[in-house]
Design a protein around this nucleic acid. Structure first.
Length: 444
RNA sequence: GCCGACAUAGCUUAGUUGGUGGAGCGGCGGACUGUUAAUCCGCAGGUCGCAGGUUCGAGUCCUGCUGUCGGCGCCA
């Protein structure tokens, strides 16, 4: 082919190429035609364009070949950009075409219109089994771009504020919380576990870096069957020295707003084509996120007739009722000490509570952040561990951080996939990650 | 861990009180010089998830198993 430089399809639609000859590379999205004319809708990572192939122009051999080519065959073609008043804006009047990677008619591309029909806002077993092929369909492609932008926004938020990115090991010896939800892996004759959180290791580096963050996978062996749980999920976590619960919360709010703002700037088109109302995201990007104390939340629930006792953790069914009253994310703070693990610092003003917070996303998406101020003095941490009945030994290194110049500090963890699901308006967290892992699926 | 559904062609599905399993999409063949999920004609494609049972006869009724989906708990 005479033309060397290939263009993106988005560049064609960008205008200014009327009458110019271009080379495009991509995959056949749709194809239809008759004995002497063929229409191929070509797709690349930037969009689609209709290409018109006439037998009289490209010759019999080329014409037969392109007419026989199935959906998802990869092709390279060159032709003239022509404006059209039909649906597409611009088309390519093709002069030359080459099939690069054909599709065997014995095994046509399995993801058909009928398979996709069910996928709109949900996923079928078939599409999950064929995830490697589903990725290239429009809905997943948009989701992956939104996801990438969110990941980028997490990095830019922290880096613009002088946080240092810091990595913790993924193989660990113990749990952050619970213990029942750890994935055990054999480790040269010993037992190791996949990390549930970066936090304990982050606290170790807190006196060195003071402001640190990570964006890494966490693993939880929960047999959860819900639309907001994965066994392998992406966790954006931060830890900051000389900070109290309020300071940490304002970073949580800042980060989420920054993510929403970045999406508006860079992915409005994708969001809208997934059916998301931009005004909704605008609200999330601009509003202040209210704070409610646990006690007030319990009262609100009781006034709605929900049966809840003080001291009980707020489970999802109760979160859902709470979120009905809010149009923007909101923090729940000051949980009862009995409901939270030892690393949450108890409130010096009332030791029944701990200085913690959860950020709940509206529209029924629920918890996206969990964080708070850490128990930072040696005496308090020993007291909290002992009163929980937790053995001290596995936490010696954690206690050491307090023995050598403990300072007030705190941090939070944000479920990035949950944020993707919420902001993109996905029905299930699985829609937001290329190869979702849950208690029943590790393939493909 | 608990509760509830579902399983029919490559995909999405219809299938009546139990009586020889249909369709649309996709594929193949043909028609058509501008289509838009192109259209029109034709063809192929099924161990009705698996194993038992009831019955003259089971996709349909019963039991068990497997798989999947949804919800709860747990959490991000």
């Amino acid at each position: 082919m005479a033309i060397v430089k290939s263009l993106w399809i988005a560049e064609v639609h960008g205008g200014g190429l009327d009458g110019k000859e271009v080379l495009l590379r991509g995959w056949i999205h749709r194809t239809r035609g008759s004995k002497s004319i063929r229409f191929v809708v070509l797709r690349d990572s930037t969009g689609t364009v209709q290409c018109v192939l006439k037998r009289a122009v490209i010759g019999d051999d080329n014409f037969e070949e392109i007419s026989a080519a199935l959906i998802e065959s990869s092709v390279e073609l060159s032709g003239q950009v022509i404006p059209t008043d039909r649906e597409h804006g611009y088309e390519i009047m093709v002069k030359d075409v080459k099939i690069v990677g054909p599709v065997n008619p014995q095994r046509p591309f399995p993801i058909t219109e009928s398979a996709m029909k069910q996928a709109d806002g949900g996923e079928t077993e078939f599409l999950l089994d064929n995830r490697h092929l589903y990725l290239r369909t429009g809905r997943m492609t948009k989701m992956l771009k939104i996801r990438s932008t969110i990941f980028g926004a997490v990095h830019s938020y922290f880096r613009d504020r002088d946080f240092t990115e810091y990595q913790a090991p993924n193989f660990v010896a113990g749990a952050v919380e619970g213990g029942s939800t750890l994935f055990e892996v054999p480790y040269f004759g010993k037992k190791a576990y996949l990390t549930q959180s970066w936090q304990l290791y982050a606290e170790a580096a807190m006196p060195a870096l003071e402001r640190l963050y990570t964006l890494a996978p966490s693993f939880r062996a929960e047999k959860s069957r819900t639309r907001r749980h994965l066994t392998e999920f992406w966790h954006a976590e931060m830890e900051i020295a000389w900070a109290d619960n309020e300071d940490v919360m304002s970073h949580g709010e800042g980060l989420v707003r920054h993510i929403a703002r970045t999406l508006l700037e860079q992915r409005s088109e994708e969001l809208e084509s997934l059916g998301r109302d931009i005004n909704t995201i605008q609200k999330y990007a601009e509003s202040h996120y209210p704070r409610i104390r646990y006690d007030d939340a319990v009262e609100m629930l009781q006034s709605k007739g929900v049966e809840i006792e003080w001291g009980q953790d707020l489970d999802f069914s109760k979160e859902k009722i709470l979120t009905e009253d809010f149009e923007v994310p909101h923090f729940l703070t000051h949980y009862p000490k009995v409901a939270k693990p030892f690393y949450h610092r108890q409130d010096p003003e009332d030791p029944k509570y701990v200085l913690c917070h959860d950020l709940l996303a509206p529209e029924g998406y629920g918890e996206i952040i969990g964080g708070g101020e850490r128990t930072w003095s040696e005496s308090e941490i020993l007291q909290r561990i002992d009163e929980e009945g937790t053995p001290r030994e596995p936490y010696e290194f954690y206690i050491d951080i307090r023995r050598y110049g403990g300072v007030p500090h705190g941090g939070f963890g944000l479920g990035v996939d949950r944020v993707c699901a919420w902001l993109a308006g996905a029905d299930h967290i699985r829609e937001t990650i290329p190869f979702p892992r849950d208690s029943r699926r590790v393939t493909p």
